[in-house]
Amino acid sequence: MSEVRKGPDEADESQCDSGIESLRSLRSLPEPTPAPASRPSDGGGPQTWTHPPGTAKEPQEKEDADGERADSTYGSSSLTEPLVLLGGLEAEDPAPRSPLPPMGALSPQQLEALTYISEDGDTLVHLAVIHEAPAVLLCCLALLPQEVLDIQNNLYQTALHLAVHLDQPGAVRALVMKGASRVLQDRHGDTALHVACQRQHLACARCLLEGQPEPGRGPSHSLDLQLQNWQGLTCLHIATLQRNQPLMELLLQNGADIDTQEGTSGKTALHLAVETQEQGLVQFLIQSGARVDARMLNGCTPLHLAAGRGLMGISSTLCQAGADSLLRNVEDETPQDLAEEVRGIYSALFSKASHTHSRDRCCH
């Protein structure tokens, strides 16, 4: 099989596994040939999979608000209608334990369809998620080898990434139960859980954190909640920047380190909460055990950031929690120095404004 073509803006191979190795035993899908209308059925068994006439679609891509591809180049009708023949299932939410035909009951063409790879690197599992076809997804999960679930497309997204991206907790739960990896990273270095935090999909995050593969589907992929994406952010950092306290609580309950530093400047979640100027988040993190005097790479504590921004309420909250106002950063500045500097700037601006106002009154 020829290698999957890479996009020009993808991460290099050293950043994440492309999943190409798992394709070596799979065959590409040949050009479909319509089955004769008069062909008899073999004893009532599954029908041969064929493209129905007139369902060919022009290449078509959809993008969501942040520019990530969320569709393939194939119309959904050419995917879901014929593949319902594999099981005839109609489910709102994939149920991995539903009865399915045994592997031997499938025709060669149906097996070829299940191992199809699109020009975008999408497997049928990706496409079932993209087109919100739970019956097709259910068939794939029951019939395909576990390693196929972890194949990454040309954007290094697994089907699990896409299920989270499109807020499909039922599909996320089904994929996790069937052993899909939760640690693979896409071209941005994001795991499926990073994506859940960025898009604030709490139900999907819960499925990823609490779900476990069923017996016989391989070892559990332990989640590293301290894993950083290419921007140096853990899931807790992202949830904090999104000001999403329920997500933060969920991550901390499942073992996220509250004092982990992000990879660019060494900020902890408490530093980031100060930068959001959300006093409630600051109080929540302090109550959850965050170190109030945690230092960035430049020596700044959360109190340095609050004082330097003139955030008097947050500065007071930090001081009440025991923050040291005399700690010095690499510039030899204390939070107290920064607060006085800010007050001096405000005082100068206020004095200048008062002087201008008095002059205007004299002129009139």
Rank of each mutant, 00 (worst) to 15 (best):
D93K: 09
P94C: 10
P94S: 04
P94G: 01
A95D: 13
A95F: 05
P96Y: 05
P96L: 01
R97V: 12
R97W: 14
S98W: 08
P99I: 08
P99C: 06
P99S: 11
P99Y: 12
P99L: 13
P101C: 00
P101S: 04
P101W: 00
P102L: 07
P102G: 03
M103W: 10
M103K: 06
G104W: 12
L106H: 05
L106W: 01
S107D: 03
S107A: 06
S107Q: 03
S107K: 00
S107L: 03
P108Y: 03
P108H: 04
Q109P: 09
Q110Y: 09
Q110G: 10
Q110S: 15
Q110P: 10
Q110R: 14
Q110T: 14
L111M: 11
L111I: 12
L111A: 11
L111N: 06
E112Y: 05
E112M: 14
A113H: 11
A113P: 00
L114Q: 11
Y116K: 04
Y116L: 13
I117F: 08
I117H: 04
S118F: 06
E119K: 11
E119I: 12
E119R: 11
E119N: 13
E119S: 13
E119T: 14
E119L: 13
D120L: 08
D120H: 11
D120Q: 10
D120A: 09
D120W: 09
G121N: 09
G121I: 04
G121L: 02
D122P: 13
D122C: 15
T123L: 08
T123I: 08
L124R: 01
V125P: 02
H126K: 07
H126R: 07
L127F: 02
A128P: 02
A128M: 02
A128C: 03
V129F: 06
V129A: 11
I130A: 10
I130R: 05
I130N: 00
I130Q: 08
I130S: 03
H131W: 09
H131F: 05
H131I: 01
E132K: 04
E132H: 03
A133C: 03
A133E: 02
A133Q: 01
A133G: 00
P134F: 04
P134T: 13
A135Q: 10
A135C: 06
V136H: 04
L137Y: 08
L137H: 12
L137D: 07
L138V: 07
L138C: 06
C139H: 14
C139P: 08
C140G: 07
C140L: 07
L141A: 02
L141E: 03
L141Q: 01
A142Q: 13
A142M: 05
L143M: 01
L143H: 02
L144F: 03
L144V: 08
L144E: 00
P145F: 04
P145M: 02
Q146P: 05
Q146S: 09
E147M: 13
E147Y: 13
V148K: 03
L149Y: 15
L149V: 15
L149W: 15
L149G: 10
L149M: 15
D150G: 06
D150H: 08
D150E: 04
I151W: 00
I151A: 13
I151T: 14
Q152S: 14
Q152G: 08
N153H: 14
N153S: 14
N153Q: 15
N154G: 11
N154L: 07
N154H: 12
